[in-house]
């Protein structure tokens, strides 16, 4: 990467383009093309590198190895989640992505949340998704899993949004309105104000779960109660909706395509 050749703006623009292109290649578009699929992954990786370089925020690779690893896991498996043809694979990839996110959260010092994400998401929500998939997914690939709605436009939109977000995140370091960056406890600072902030950040790490619990059931007790009620309502609501009884007639007029055609294609694959 020659900085003279690639100005930051150009770098960012090419990263955005590559992201869009890669996502578009990866997303299901009806026809399956292995090489396009690999090209998409490659472009995505290059784009990710472009974003990383555009940010120029990574220090030595060794220091942030953990962070880099877990975030890579999260991002790659997140990408795989949305591009997998089979929803079951998507769910599995999502689980891996959750693991990556949990790692990021751990790096950020939110130990409880890291664990909770794994427990709640991977352990409960995701399993629920899988159950539903088992119940509802027809055998084999459905036609709607093989095509996307407006893939190119969506990919471009997402990429531009990502570019904008990266730009504004990059501004954080240079913008005049940016608050004085707080140092970690390890990076000692001279000023008393920052040291107090460092102590506050330190406090996030020390006795983390107990203090988070105290915070939750102290300052945010009302919200916790509200969340509890919300959970109860969701429980009752879902039971009520399910127990209303299912219509026994399948409305085939809503089909986008004759089911026989799908079966034919599946039959061909078998």
């Amino acid at each position: 990467m020659n900085p003279a050749l690639f100005s930051p703006g150009l770098l960012l623009a090419s990263a955005v383009t590559l992201t869009a292109l890669g996502l578009w290649l990866l997303l299901p578009r009806g026809s399956e093309n292995r090489s396009a699929w690999w090209l998409g992954w490659l472009l995505g990786a290059v784009a990710l590198a472009g974003f990383v370089c555009a940010g120029k925020r990574l220090g030595g690779i060794g220091e942030e190895a953990v962070f880099l690893t877990v975030s890579l896991v999260a991002i790659v498996s997140g990408t795989a989640t949305i591009v997998s043809r089979s929803p079951v694979y998507s769910a599995i990839w999502f689980a891996l992505s959750l693991a990556g996110v949990a790692g990021v959260l751990l790096v950020l010092g939110a130990q409880f949340l890291g664990v909770a994400t794994i427990v709640v998401y991977a352990g409960a929500i995701l399993v629920m998704f899988l159950f539903v998939l088992m119940l509802a997914q027809p055998s084999g690939l459905a036609s709607y899993d093989r095509v996307s709605s407006e893939p190119l436009l969506s990919a471009v939109t997402g990429a531009v949004l990502l570019g904008l977000l990266t730009l504004s995140i990059g501004r954080l370091s240079v913008g005049p309105a940016t608050p004085e960056p707080l140092a970690l406890a390890s990076a000692a600072s001279d000023s008393p104000a920052t040291s107090s902030h460092a102590a506050a950040i330190d406090s996030l790490v020390k006795n983390h779960v107990a203090r988070l619990g105290g915070e939750l059931f102290g300052r945010h007790l009302l919200a916790v109660e509200a969340a509890g009620v919300l959970l109860l309502v969701a429980l009752i609501g879902s039971i009520a909706i399910v127990s209303r009884g299912e219509p026994d007639v399948v409305d085939h007029s809503l089909d986008l395509q004759p089911l026989t055609a799908t079966k034919q294609s599946q039959g061909g694959r078998r």
Partner: peptide
């Protein structure tokens, strides 16, 4: 498509 239009508008 509606959702996409909304996102594009926000963008």
């Amino acid at each position: 498509r509606y959702a996409l239009a909304g996102v594009m508008g926000v963008l």
